[in-house]
Design a binder for these strands. Structure first.
Lengths: 245, 245
DNA sequence: TCCTTAAGAGTCATGTTGACTATAAAGGTC
DNA sequence: GACCTTTATAGTCAACATGACTCTTAAGGA
């Protein structure tokens, strides 16, 4: 078969059509734990299971537009808020039997959100909720794998990009930033070394003028920072041990 | 719209269906230049332009299966050879108007091949050819962007994975491996430092017993190595300057 | 025989990292 | 109020990795 030329007599409409959907792995750090946004399925298949939010790509939108639209609908976030979120294509899942009902090719996205606003279901029934990563049972469809892939990807990208700031509110302390790394990687980092590394990387964070902020309780107040201009880290901030699987 | 539940009255078959295709950015290093496998389009749109090889995903195959099948068909490589190639999903391109004829969502893959066997068109007309990267005019559809994304991705992955060995034949010299880095990154690397770094990374390469091989002409014969067990580089082998755009 | 090319061994100064120590500034407890 | 705990922030020091080199070896070509 030649590139992009259907074989003789091929008419895509003659086949059972492919449905194209988006799935969203929306992650946040809340109370020192990684949380995922999930919806509970009401119907078969997988009725009663948790699933990643998502939905069909409409005829005139791109997969990314569909992802932002679904995210707004399922979380009740405003369009402006959703427009600013860090949204990144993860990969596409296309196994023929991943959905028992029909042929569905799904473009998965990873979204990172700072302060987790409690979601409210959109106009319709499905209630989206934040659950601690790993505490939910098996997810519907191949969503366990999608979620695991998203976690792997985010963990890897923390090493060589400034992605961690996407988990933080506009102004944050270095302790909060360190907490992001510790939570996603599941390790403890040395405070002074982390601080030295972040401040030595030009453009990672920029100091905010003004008084330090109380950390919410104990300890010495911490200085505030904003995300900087840089998007990549050179050299990278590597995980303690070797790379995980 | 609730996750994976079509809205009321929604029937995917009622819409113009989405076609799902794969596009392949097949790269190799030949004569110290990066080469891309391209096919010449015979029909409108973009008749006469070069395009990435690719084709439709059939109803019962995954995108990756379709990619390997298309690759075998368009290069004339045997199924076994294609089965061993390094094939990696790049990302999915889904802009509504990327193909003027119909709605086509394309899953792009990057394939890395070692010694470039001159391809022969499969049973059908399209002649696939290796062209030096950048010497072809504008490609059909959004393939310039796909190819650029593939190049970026490969360049970045050379830094922190053992991917470079996928460009090399089963047994290779460190000079050939260095050539891969230099060609993809477009820089010159210091020979002794490159050697030290590669040999110091456990599992990157393993020495092959036996006599050294003549490099094909000048210079001292070089020892041969095979790809090792490792898949990631710790610490990474960073590009000389900062990261490119 | 001499020149050129590339492999491979080794040196040295610099930069980065991991492990630690110490001090400052908050809240909590008795 | 004295004292403990917690967290931020400033340093120190040794191990390690890197970039820039030099030098030797072993091939082909003129």
């Amino acid at each position: 078969m030649t590139a992009h030329q259907p074989p003789e007599g091929y008419d895509p409409r003659a086949f059972e059509p492919f449905a194209v959907t988006v799935d969203l792995a929306v992650l946040t750090v809340r109370e020192e734990r990684l949380h995922v946004l999930l919806v509970e399925r009401g119907e078969s298949p997988y009725a009663g299971s948790w699933a990643l939010p998502g939905g069909f790509v409409l005829p005139r939108e791109s997969a990314e537009q569909a992802a932002r639209r679904e995210l707004a609908e399922e979380t009740g976030l405003s369009g402006d808020t959703v427009a600013d979120l860090h949204l990144e294509q993860l990969r596409t899942y296309s196994e023929p039997d991943r959905d028992p009902r029909m042929r569905v090719v799904s473009v998965a996205f990873t979204a990172l959100v700072p302060d987790p606003p409690e979601p409210r279901g959109g106009g319709d029934a499905a209630q989206a909720r934040w659950l601690p990563y790993g505490t939910h049972g098996p997810l519907a469809f191949d969503h366990d794998r999608i979620l695991a892939d998203a976690h792997d990807r985010v963990g890897a990208k923390l090493e060589y990009t400034c992605l961690a700031t996407a988990f933080c509110p506009p102004e944050f302390t270095l302790g909060e930033l360190r907490q992001v790394y510790e939570t996603v990687w599941g390790v403890e980092l040395d405070r002074p070394n982390f601080r030295r590394k972040v401040l030595a990387t030009p453009g990672f964070v920029q100091a905010v003028a003004g008084p330090p902020r109380l950390t919410g309780g104990r300890g010495k107040p911490a200085a505030l920072y904003r995300a900087g201009e840089a998007t990549t880290l050179h050299p990278p901030l590597l995980r303690p041990e070797g790379r995980p699987a």
